[in-house]
Nucleic acid binder design. Sequence first.
DNA 1: ACTCAAGTTCGTAAATTCCGAAGTGGCTCC
DNA 2: GGAGCCACTTCGGAATTTACGAACTTGAGT
Lengths: 301, 301
Amino acid sequence: MLNYRHLYYFWMVSKEGGFAPAPQRLVMAIQTNRAQVRELEKTLGYQVLKPAGRSVALTDAGKAAFARADEIFQIGQNLAEEVRAVASKRVIRLSVGLSDGISKLAAHSVLALVLDTPDLKLLCHEGEFEQLQSELALHRLDIVLAGQSAPPNPNLRLNSERLVSSPVDWYGPEKLVKKSDVGTFPQSLEHLPVLLPTGHSVLRSSLDRWFLERGVKPHIVGEFEDSALMSVFAARGLGVFPVSRLGTDDLGLMPGLRMLGQCEDLHEEIYAIQNRRGQQHPLVQQILAKRTDLGTTHPSA
Amino acid sequence: MLNYRHLYYFWMVSKEGGFAPAPQRLVMAIQTNRAQVRELEKTLGYQVLKPAGRSVALTDAGKAAFARADEIFQIGQNLAEEVRAVASKRVIRLSVGLSDGISKLAAHSVLALVLDTPDLKLLCHEGEFEQLQSELALHRLDIVLAGQSAPPNPNLRLNSERLVSSPVDWYGPEKLVKKSDVGTFPQSLEHLPVLLPTGHSVLRSSLDRWFLERGVKPHIVGEFEDSALMSVFAARGLGVFPVSRLGTDDLGLMPGLRMLGQCEDLHEEIYAIQNRRGQQHPLVQQILAKRTDLGTTHPSA
DNA sequence: ACTCAAGTTCGTAAATTCCGAAGTGGCTCC
DNA sequence: GGAGCCACTTCGGAATTTACGAACTTGAGT
């Protein structure tokens, strides 16, 4: 087990250039300093310093150790100051986990509810659904937004609440979407080029089921991890794509899109997962309170 | 003064998610762990953990501290292993300091003398002349290559030796350098576009003196820190430029250049600066021994 | 050879890190 | 709504680490 005090003394010796100046700067006895560096060498299993004239020099191992030690203590030197800066600032931090399968457009709509909070510092962290759950349990995240509710795991005390259940609409570039296509929706999806989210997402599973129920075999020309990216490609003429009505607002920047159809019986859902007990983050409470403001929220269970 | 042991325990607690699992993993008593984190809070002046249910959670200050601690201990975890890897490898390290004013082309020619050493790991470090001197004195560098010799400072025991004194030739792109220009050199420098090293370099000082002595007022169209960069721009037609004969070999890759003139009475010099005493690096000795192999070495004092 | 400066060794004192034992308080289950 | 559990606390003294005073080598400069 590496002892950081030993490493620190070694670092000082290397930086100051010997066992004479370093202990003086550290206001300590020279023998102590030397003994501690000896300890470091014992734990590393290699000499880090070697005699050089009447001073000492770094060995190759020592050079490597010094390079790393330098990184470490560079960070360490600033740590206290940074903590002080963070603690004294009046910022409100909100750590949000975004599950991999979630639509970024929709996630933005949810977070927009609190985005006008003054002095807000938003920390977004994407990751696998399972990983985010454990980070939440360890109080490293305040809330997780996901396309699915958390399974009732008695070890992780988590509460899921459905924030929104937003019907899905289809859009496509104007030059692609004809009037007849709108009339024959959703059958028109069989000859129109279709873009879909990849299989990772919950929405994709719902879509596949939806296609199956209606006997529609869409002509898939592209699959995207990222819903925002998909909308860009669609607007450039690649094909038509589904988007939850909640995410539609964010599409305002994307001109030249025409609605192809609506499916009220298919919903993209977003769940807010949080710790069951423990005082909740004020902004999380605010999101839950304002959730009906998400205009497209589906009222039913 | 930040205690890294305290920080380490705090890091473990945050990573493992509480005071129950962390000490178990560290094989230590829980109270100890807690006490140490308390000490951290005392030195930082802020709480890093706060009660949350029957466990604890990070405060905002704690989150900031954890982020930094994570960086630190990530490095620390690998340090021992890296040192071991370096120490057990049969590589020969040579740490070279290149003074800012030196021509990279010439530096390469010098280092080429030992570049065929098997298992060589060359560490090149550029910097100000003064800074390199102190790094050399601290045995952080094995040798410094500079355009000037080290002033006799009794505190820093350094030895300078002139490695090469190479005459300077002028080249330019073929379409620019006419036969008449070659005939009227160096007066032709007054109408040809001339590229020069910036004032930082020793060569530039020598050049300016050389111009003055001959009453030549060159038509300067560009100044470059980096000699290699200068040669590239010159080859693309920007102008004519001076280069020491030693560096000419490296110009092989630069076709379309024609010699404009030679000045035997102007030399770019390169000095090797090393520690006076202390066993010298074998490769440094090799460089000094082979220095006459640098074909263009000027024999005189 | 002498001197000074840098590094080393040894033994003991001071500080810290550590654990056993005995509380608190929140949470869950019945 | 009370029993029980689990996570976190507090307190005191033991064990380990860290630190220093004093005396000893070794190398470089004069």
